[in-house]
Design a binder for these strands. Structure first.
Lengths: 236, 236
DNA sequence: GCCAATATCTCAACATATGAGAAAGCAGAT
DNA sequence: ATCTGCTTTCTCATATGTTGAGATATTGGC
C-alpha cells in the first residue's frame, strides 16, 4: 500500500487505490492509517495522502555515494570479467580521488589500493570527476596547483588541464595515457545522478602497449555498466 | 531499525546498531533480515546494510513538488494570519505559473484562483520561478515572447526582463509593482531544494498604496516561512 | 436533504513478532 | 593450531498484531 500511495502521488482516495490493487477497502484503510500513525505517510486532506515526514527523513539520509559504491560492486566484477582488465571506482573528496572498488585479474599489478587517496589531475577517474564538478569548485581546483609531473605525459599546466577537462566533459569519458604511471593507461566514465552531478566514476585500466580490447569496445562496456549502475541507484 | 541502518549508512554491524539503540540483538537481526527479504534494505557484505531496491524505488517516486505544496499549506495559512494579507504558492509548468495555494483574508478580492495558469513574466511568483530556472530554459523563455503589457508597469522588453530576473536571482526575492493588475502589488520568494533548484515560490499580495506591513517585514516573514517549508521537505 | 462514494468499526480466525538464552560461525591475535 | 571476543543464527512458548467481511457512520456534491 505504501508504494501504491507514493506512486499515486496523492491523487486518489484510499478506496480507489484499494480497488485498483485488489485489496479489501477496510484493509487498505487500516494499513494507510497505520502508515500515517508511523509517519511514513501524511494526509493532505480530502482522504488523500503523500510521503510522510519519516519517509522524507529517510530520503534525506540515503547517501547515494555509498549507494553507488555498493550497487556498483557486483556490476564492476562482471565488467572486469568481461574485459579481462582491472576495473576501479573512485569518488572525489577533498580535491583527491578516493578509490573505493578495485577488481579484476591482475589487480595486484596496479599500485592503487582501496581507500587510497590520489591526486585527481593525473588519473582517468580523477579527470572525469573534476570535469563534472560545479564550475566554481573546478576553477578553485585549477587555481590550487601546482600539478606535479609524475611521468612524461602528466598534464602540469593549469590551462592545459582546464582544456582537457572541457574535452572530457564534452566527450563523456577521460583517457589516462600513462599520466600517473608510464606503464598504465586507462579509460574512465562518470556515474551521473539524474540532475547531472557525478558522485563517482569508473575505469578500466590496462598495461600500455599491450593489446587487450580496443578502446572503443572498452568504452562501450564502461558506458553500459555506468548506465546499469545509474538505473539501479536512481531509476524512477 | 530501518532508520538506524539508513542513518548509519552501512558503517556498523547489526549487533552494534542493536546495542546503540537498546534493542535485543536477536530482534535486530530478525528485523533486518525481514527488511532485506522485503527489499527495504540490501546487504553489502560483512554484515553491513544500505538502502534496498524497494526503498530506492519509493524514494525515487516521492514527488517533492507535490510535497512542497502540501507541506506548505498550513504554514502559509499561518503566514496569511500574521500578515493579514493574501498568501499564494505557485509552481512553474509549461512556461506558465500555476497557482496551487491561495489563502488569507480577502482572498476573493484577488482574481487568481487555485489551479489557474498565468503568464510568468508579470507576477512576483512567476519572476522568482523564472529567475531560478536553468539558464538554457530561461533563455528559451526570454526568446519566446512577446510579453504583452497588462498594465503600465508590466515589463515587456526581453532585455529588461532578463535584467530584472538577474536582480531577482541576486536579491532572493521578486516584487510585482502592479505589473498584472494596477491595484495589486506583491513580494515573492523561492522555495529552494538543497541543490538550489526551485520547485515553487510563495508570495504575499497587497492592494497598492494601502499601508499594511512594510516590505521589509513582509520579506522577513516570507523568508522565515520558506525556510520552514524547505526544512520540512528537504531537511537531513 | 438526498445519494453515492468514502471512511470507520467490530469480530473471531489467523499469522507473525517478541525476547532470552543457547549454539554456531568467523577472524584476528597469540 | 587454538584461543578469544565478536557477530550471527537458532529455538521456544508467549504475546501481539493483522486479516477480511460485513455492518455502520461519515462525507461531499447536487
Amino acid at each position: 500500500m505504501l508504494e501504491a500511495v507514493i506512486e499515486d502521488g496523492g491523487a486518489s482516495s484510499v478506496s480507489a487505490l484499494a480497488r485498483k490493487h485488489d485489496v479489501p477497502v477496510a484493509t487498505a484503510h487500516r494499513q494507510v492509517a497505520t502508515l500515517v500513525s508511523e509517519g511514513f505517510l501524511a494526509p493532505t486532506g480530502g482522504g488523500r495522502h503523500i510521503a510522510g515526514p519519516r519517509l522524507r527523513a529517510i530520503l534525506a539520509r540515503v547517501d547515494d555515494k555509498q549507494l553507488v559504491t555498493n550497487v556498483a560492486a557486483p556490476l564492476l566484477h562482471r565488467l572486469a570479467a568481461r574485459t579481462g582488465a582491472v576495473v576501479q571506482l573512485g569518488t572525489f573528496e577533498n580535491d583527491m580521488v578516493t578509490y573505493r572498488i578495485k577488481t579484476g585479474e591482475g589487480a595486484n599489478s596496479l599500485f592503487t589500493k582501496v581507500d587510497m587517496q590520489l591526486e585527481a589531475y593525473c588519473s582517468g577517474i580523477g579527470k572525469v570527476l573534476l570535469a563534472h564538478l560545479p564550475q566554481a569548485q573546478r576553477d578553485a581546483y585549477l587555481a590550487g596547483g601546482p600539478f606535479v609531473a609524475l611521468t612524461e605525459t602528466t598534464i602540469t599546466d593549469p590551462a592545459d588541464l582546464a582544456h582537457e577537462l572541457e574535452q572530457v566533459a564534452k566527450a563523456g569519458y577521460a583517457e589516462d595515457r600513462g599520466e600517473i604511471d608510464p606503464a598504465i593507461s586507462c579509460v574512465a566514465v562518470p556515474i551521473r545522478r539524474p540532475d547531472g552531478s557525478v558522485p563517482a566514476a569508473i575505469s578500466v585500466s590496462r598495461l600500455r602497449g599491450k593489446g587487450g580490447m580496443k578502446t572503443d569496445a572498452v568504452l562501450a562496456a564502461l558506458h553500459t555498466t555506468a548506465a546499469e549502475i545509474e538505473k539501479s541507484c536512481f531509476s524512477s
